[in-house]
Amino acid sequence: MKRHLPVLALFAAASLALSACSSAGGDTDVSEATNLDAETQALVDEAKAAGTVTLYGMVEESALRQLAADFKAAYGITVEPLRLVSSDLTQRFSSEADSGSSPADLIMLTDSPFYDEALEKEWLLPFSEAEIPGSLIEEFPAELYTHDGNTPIISMVPTEMAYNTDLVASAPTSWEEYAKPEHKGKIQIAEVDSSPANIAFWSLMRSEYGDGFLEDIAANTPVLSGGAVPGTQAVAAGESAIAHPGVLAVVKSLQGSGAPVEISSPSPTTGPEVGLGLVNNSPNPAGAKLLAAFLMSKDGNQRFNEVVSQISPYDSEGMAGFTRVRDIEMSDAAELKTLLGMN
């Protein structure tokens, strides 16, 4: 019998700071959208007349800026992004929506039961009722509409491994790296039950490699990192050789300071999924639909996921190595902790 957990927290991002982004910035090679059908042109005209599109998003700030630049190049419409981590985005938007007004037009949020609540309270407009021109989203995979077909999943966030390039000879190609005897005492691991995503990952590892694999990791006496961010930092400092999970944003930042740290992406893997929500009665509903369609289109989606280093639904190879949480037979967290020597 399968036990399922909702995909909740995205791994803690870098500093977890809130930051409002300026509107479009940065270079783009996206071309202006031309030869639009009448329905799409009407949506573009309506969006332009309404002004800017306000996007609340939980991906890194630079990616939101790039998205804003790409969208403006395509449609001539300015996007004002606000970057918040998922928990803060949920709290802020809920407070605004509950008061009857939010400046947001579109939200980009880690998939969770929040979408069910927001749809039930009519804070969000179901995508099944959005009437987005079919020509814009006809290629989007039907199986990636969740919450009764009302929330499209535009990105998969794979669990990754951070490693110290001075201590690990070559990029790990398998999760079995965690069980190699030479890494004894040199592995950083976040608490198994610190997030549903971690439970899902270790359940997948148990299914893929068996209990013995987890017991071999326990024999390597992993260090409990206190979280993904400090674990990644410890690896960068040379205190450990590898860490689970790795945090891409932290790795990039530390690389900028010259730290010998890198990210590896073995498969199979799993992780959070990123969904979109159209805000009901927003200031620019046409702009929200157009921006959502841009993110759901093959070209726009692949470009966005390339920028954030995540998996696009249109990436057949990446999707083949990613196991969605709903397809994982979940293990009891206490059992996983025992196998990994954490109890």
Rank of each mutant, 00 (worst) to 15 (best):
S207I: 02
E131N: 15
A228C: 10
L82M: 03
Y115W: 10
L125E: 14
F140S: 08
E32T: 14
A200D: 09
S95Y: 13
D29I: 12
A234G: 03
S112D: 06
S297L: 10
V157K: 04
P272M: 09
T52A: 14
Q255D: 00
I77L: 11
P272T: 14
I217F: 03
P283H: 11
W175M: 02
F127T: 03
L125R: 13
M342Y: 05
S95R: 14
L16V: 08
D111K: 07
A73T: 02
Q310A: 12
A259W: 06
S99G: 11
T270W: 09
S87N: 09
L125T: 15
S203D: 04
L106C: 07
L278Y: 01
A169P: 04
I242C: 02
R65T: 09
L55P: 00
L106N: 00
A17Q: 13
S15I: 06
G134P: 13
N301W: 09
S309Q: 14
G212K: 01
L84F: 15
R3L: 09
A249G: 08
S257H: 10
H183N: 15
P272W: 09
V85L: 07
P222V: 05
L167S: 06
G321E: 07
F71Q: 02
L67I: 12
P268M: 13
L336S: 00
A219D: 11
I107Q: 08
S102D: 03
E143W: 05
L109Q: 10
Q302C: 12
G185E: 04
S135M: 04
L43R: 12
E32C: 11
A334E: 00
N280P: 04
D105W: 00
S316D: 13
N301C: 12
D116I: 03
Y314E: 11
D116E: 13
R3M: 04
G246I: 09
N35C: 08
W123E: 06
Y145E: 10
I311W: 00
A14I: 05
F127R: 02
A320N: 06
L136N: 06
N343L: 07
M156Y: 12
L125C: 02
M58Q: 14
P222L: 02
M330I: 14
K337A: 01
V79G: 01
L89Y: 02
L5V: 13
D193T: 01
V279Y: 01
I132W: 09
D105S: 07
G318K: 08
D45Y: 06
L276T: 06
T52S: 12
G226A: 07
E60Q: 14
G100W: 05
K298R: 14
P126S: 03
G227D: 05
A334F: 00
D111L: 12
P113E: 13
D27W: 07
